[in-house]
């Protein structure tokens, strides 16, 4: 199989009468992180959802490792992690239970992996509390733990630093750093510049209304 590379060619998408994505082109390869910036409503989320195959572009195509993602959607999905606006957590379950069910659907968790991931995001204190009692930042951290647990080469992140304190924002930067260093690919929609310590491999793209 060819190298990790997510590529969008002339992607068009409408929402009703609104032409949201107007021939968007992008390319992120192994060891790269592409930051999507742009005002609200310029289609950052839509682009991410299109890139992961949830939304269907009416023009153009998206390829992963040189193959249109629609050709083998499941194999493509097995290689990507998508984090949306909301952390996909159930408020009645604890953070640990949430991760167990969320990640368990994708892959078998081994040994102390879950503990380590929670530790990594500073979750020792609250891992066993119901998510309902956690702050928005803690929920976001739990979601980041899930992200690292998926162990997939492609990350698609929608505003990963929302609700995070300075330290948490740094954590996002470090996680992306490590991911990219290991040869992974990241595509992130952001409002604020990511706190990435090794800026080589970091690229920016701005979406505008025209």
């Amino acid at each position: 199989m060819s190298e990790f590379c997510l590529k969008g060619e002339n992607v068009h998408l409408w929402r009703g009468d609104h032409h949201v994505l107007r021939g968007v082109r992008f390319q992120v390869g192994a060891g790269e992180c592409l930051q999507l910036t742009g005002a609200n409503g310029t289609g950052k989320t839509t682009l991410l959802r299109t890139a992961c195959g949830l939304a269907y572009p009416e023009g153009g195509e998206i390829t992963w490792r040189g193959q249109n993602i629609r050709e083998d959607m499941r194999a493509f999905h097995a290689q990507l992690a998508y984090l949306g606006h909301e952390p996909p957590l159930k408020s009645e379950l604890t953070a640990r239970e949430n991760l167990h069910y969320w990640i368990g659907v994708r892959r078998r968790l081994e040994g102390r992996e879950l503990d380590q991931a929670l530790e990594r995001v500073g979750g020792n204190q609250w891992a066993d509390r119901p998510v309902r009692t956690l702050s928005a930042g803690q929920k976001r951290r739990a979601a980041l733990a899930g992200l690292t647990l998926m162990r997939v080469p492609l990350w698609l992140l929608d505003e990963p630093t929302t609700n995070l304190d300075a330290e948490g924002q740094k954590l996002v930067g470090t996680l992306i750093d490590e991911h990219v260093q290991a040869g992974g690919v990241a595509l992130a929609a952001v409002h604020h510049e990511l706190a990435v310590s090794r800026p080589n491999g970091l690229r920016r793209m701005e979406l505008t209304f025209d």
Binding site: M1, F4, A30, A75, A78, Q79, Y101, G104, V105, R106, R107, R108, T148, M150, R151, V152, P153, E178, H179, A182, G183, G184
Partner: peptide, 22 residues
């Protein structure tokens, strides 16, 4: 390793049935 960059199977996959049970 964050993922196995060589192969397509990036991790021990879960069978459909096991996922459904979860």
């Amino acid at each position: 390793p964050a993922f196995d960059s060589a192969s397509d199977a990036t991790h021990p996959a879960v069978t459909a049935l096991a996922a459904a049970r979860l």
